[in-house]
Amino acid sequence: MITELKRRFPLLLRLAVHLGGILPLVFLVRDALTDNLTVNPYQKAEQRTGETALVLLLFSLACTPLNILFGFSRAVKHRRTLGLYAFFYASLHLFIFSVLDYGLDWEIIWDTVLENRYIFVGLAAFLCLLALAVTSFRWWMKRMGKNWTRLHRVVYLAGGLAILHLAWVIKGDVLGLAGNVGKPILYGTILAVLLVVRIPPIRRTIVQFRREIQHRTAGTIKPPIREYRELP
């Protein structure tokens, strides 16, 4: 049974990734059709799609640290899928805001964008994700070479901007730890940890430490574990 699970694990992981990407949409559509999005449905849908995009982006950003911390190299294969799902929900979020909520009334939208810095940073995060999504395919990866890696570091910026977007939209003061600040603090902390783990000296230390522990517990010297390298 356990060996069977182990054999099937790659498939199960892939399935979990896709379920995580698709189920939030299924639930959103279900709640929209059954009138379960509160009496202010556009706002609720905006909040749900926005949070889903952020969580999926954090999952995407967690893949590499999972490999660094636990040697879970398989996670790295799912970075792009999770990132694309995050982009999908970010697009849906923008669509609901501009088309459904503001009815493509450009006069009102323009006023709103000018007066709301959270929309600026949200839009900036979206543009980052757009650039990454467009260039996420192998063809671009090959074509861009080293620049591709450089460009795709923008994902960290997108994560930071998305959290700032959330921190500025809630009622309260995140830095003052006052108000409705639980979520921005939670997601911000997660993002910070995920980023710190990647800092080269810290990453090297962690990888070395992990290998030592693995060797000691195994009692034998194993062949060196393939270390994850930046793609391509």
């Binding site: 556009y42 009102i108 006023d111 709103t112 007066e115 709301n116 810095r117 959270y118 500025w168």
Partner: peptide
């Protein structure tokens, strides 16, 4: 942080 020009 938010415009108050419109409401739903």
């Amino acid at each position: 942080r938010w415009s108050q020009a419109t409401e739903r």
